[in-house]
Design a binder for these strands. Structure first.
Lengths: 195, 195
DNA sequence: ACGTTTCCATACGTACGAGTATGGTAAATG
DNA sequence: CATTTACCATACTCGTACGTATGGAAACGT
């Protein structure tokens, strides 16, 4: 009934979802440790009083935010799976998504550098497991036996994770656009066997 | 039995080096954020007063500790380089060192999950650069042209970094010993071309 | 119109960790 | 023996960030 369901634009009042969304943006920008309730409140144009009406505590906010992100990520994975039927092309699109794409991806990148956080650790484990399963499935569709597919999936995902790490260290835009493309081509050629 | 020195000899007094060493142990165990001067002092069997006699502040301790570790790591790399003449075998030994080995390795693993730390970031960049250079050199010795060797080195080190990440997430001993060996064999076969 | 609910501001309480001030004691030094 | 120096303990201050208490105002129900 109320117009609190209206997402953007003229909002006279905030919802819990708004806080979660903004928290994810902050995580993507400065990491999970930067999610402080007072600074976040300033970012939202309000004060702590508002926050503690919507959430019991900071931990609760993080929990909800991470759940929201995980659902979103799982959905992304599912659609990209059903969208591309060729398993090889599916694997290639997985890598290609590394450099581009924005928020969802940056959130994951930030979360990886906070893998020691008690709320983040199990999440990362679930997400990695889920993604590797998809990669594994693609390799099986190509024709590898389960054992081999498992190894390939692990190596593929490791290469992905490691590249993320290297990206973050170099605060510089890392590689030039063409160098990035050349490297991606190499990776794909090495990890995804040709017909 | 003494309680003041679990380290070496019978030391009635501590040196700055002792603090740095213990800090590195703590980093390996619980990450850099766990390096708090009071808790560290308790670990050393003394109090803050001692710490601030040896160091100006916490930042100074971390700086010295990380320098010490970086030197140690660079020396390790150098010796392993000169010890193994066959470039292929050199690369294999690099991977094999992933699962085993102890402190130095765990410190690096912990530092990777703190890549946002201002003192850690440049260190990680230097270390990654130095290590990749060695890997790149090995690939060149095998016979790849510089461009190809660069790509292979980046992919190899990414796979290494990513595997570290996966290891840390699963607090579980991750893979069984034989599964680990099987995976390593696969990685080596995939990334290091046979004669 | 009036009370209730929703949403938020303000002010306070508290815990933790870095850093300081100061003093004590044992060993070295003259 | 006296005194300086090295090393450490104790007791503080201070900044930060979480959480609470309470009150105010707009929106809503009846």
């Amino acid at each position: 009934m109320n117009q609190s369901t209206a997402k953007k634009k003229e909002r006279s009042t905030l919802s819990a979802g708004d806080w979660e969304q903004q928290a994810l943006i902050l995580i993507a920008e400065k990491g999970i440790r930067a999610v402080a309730v007072e600074s976040l409140a300033r970012r939202m144009g309000v004060t702590k009083g508002s926050f503690y009406w919507h959430f019991n505590n900071r931990e609760s906010l993080l929990e909800q935010s991470l759940i929201r992100w995980e659902k979103h990520d799982a959905a992304n994975l599912q659609t990209s799976l059903s969208a591309i039927e060729d398993p090889r092309e599916r694997l290639r699109s997985f890598f290609r998504r590394t450099g581009r794409e924005k928020l969802t991806h940056n959130v994951y990148s930030s979360l990886c550098t906070a893998s020691d956080h008690p709320q983040v650790e199990p999440l990362l484990e679930r997400v990695a497991e889920r993604r590797m399963k998809h990669i594994e499935k693609a390799f099986e569709e190509i024709g590898f036996d389960p054992k081999e597919a498992s190894h390939r999936a692990r190596l593929t995902y490791s290469a992905y994770l490691g590249f993320l790490q290297l990206q973050q260290q170099h605060q510089t835009p890392s590689l030039s656009s063409e160098e990035f493309e050349a490297y991606m081509t190499h990776v794909i050629a090495t990890l995804i066997p040709e017909e």
